[in-house]
Simulated scan of single mutants.
Amino acid sequence: MELKQAFGQALKQFRLAKGLTQEDFSSISSRTYLSTLERGLKCPTLDKLEGLASVMEVHPLSVLAAAYHMKGDTGGLEALLARIRAEVGSATPKS
């Protein structure tokens, strides 16, 4: 599965799990744009992703992690989260 399609599916699953309609995103996006994202036709900017996630009350990384997990090349969700934890930890300056 392509990443855009996986992202669209993840976005739609989060939206539906939260009981939201595409119209509930009208303060930050048109229904048409949200539909194109969910169908995997477009990719959002980081700012748009943050706005979409805020409407759903989830962290933007949750949507991205779900997308990469759906894409299927992560070795499972736990492996993906462990990799993210290690990479962020090694890239962050120690205090």
Rank of each mutant, 00 (worst) to 15 (best):
residue 59 H to R: 14
residue 23 E to S: 08
residue 7 F to K: 04
residue 29 S to A: 15
residue 61 L to Q: 08
residue 53 A to T: 05
residue 38 E to L: 02
residue 85 R to D: 15
residue 38 E to P: 00
residue 54 S to Q: 09
residue 41 L to C: 06
residue 91 A to D: 15
residue 43 C to F: 08
residue 76 G to V: 10
residue 80 L to E: 12
residue 46 L to E: 11
residue 93 P to H: 13
residue 26 S to H: 15
residue 47 D to T: 12
residue 63 V to N: 00
residue 29 S to Q: 10
residue 2 E to F: 07
residue 10 A to T: 07
residue 62 S to H: 13
residue 4 K to Y: 07
residue 22 Q to E: 13
residue 74 T to A: 12
residue 21 T to N: 07
residue 81 L to G: 07
residue 71 K to F: 10
residue 30 S to Q: 06
residue 52 L to N: 01
residue 1 M to Q: 11
residue 38 E to N: 02
residue 77 L to G: 02
residue 92 T to F: 10
residue 71 K to C: 10
residue 11 L to N: 03
residue 55 V to F: 00
residue 18 K to R: 15
residue 41 L to W: 09
residue 82 A to G: 04
residue 3 L to C: 03
residue 52 L to E: 03
residue 89 G to W: 07
residue 45 T to H: 07
residue 86 A to Y: 08
residue 85 R to A: 15
residue 93 P to L: 13
residue 23 E to D: 13
residue 15 R to A: 03
residue 41 L to A: 09
residue 19 G to L: 05
residue 29 S to Y: 01
residue 5 Q to Y: 02
residue 4 K to L: 13
residue 2 E to N: 14
residue 74 T to R: 09
residue 28 I to A: 05
residue 33 Y to M: 10
residue 40 G to V: 07
residue 16 L to Y: 05
residue 65 A to R: 08
residue 3 L to V: 10
residue 4 K to D: 09
residue 69 H to F: 12
residue 37 L to S: 04
residue 84 I to M: 15
residue 71 K to I: 09
residue 36 T to Y: 08
residue 83 R to W: 08
residue 62 S to D: 15
residue 41 L to N: 11
residue 18 K to A: 15
residue 48 K to Y: 00
residue 70 M to Y: 15
residue 11 L to D: 02
residue 59 H to F: 08
residue 79 A to G: 02
residue 76 G to M: 09
residue 49 L to K: 02
residue 36 T to E: 14
residue 39 R to M: 01
residue 52 L to S: 00
residue 25 F to T: 01
residue 66 A to H: 09
residue 18 K to F: 11
residue 38 E to T: 02
residue 25 F to G: 02
residue 37 L to V: 05
residue 52 L to Q: 04
residue 60 P to R: 00
residue 47 D to F: 04
residue 54 S to I: 01
residue 63 V to M: 00
residue 70 M to A: 14
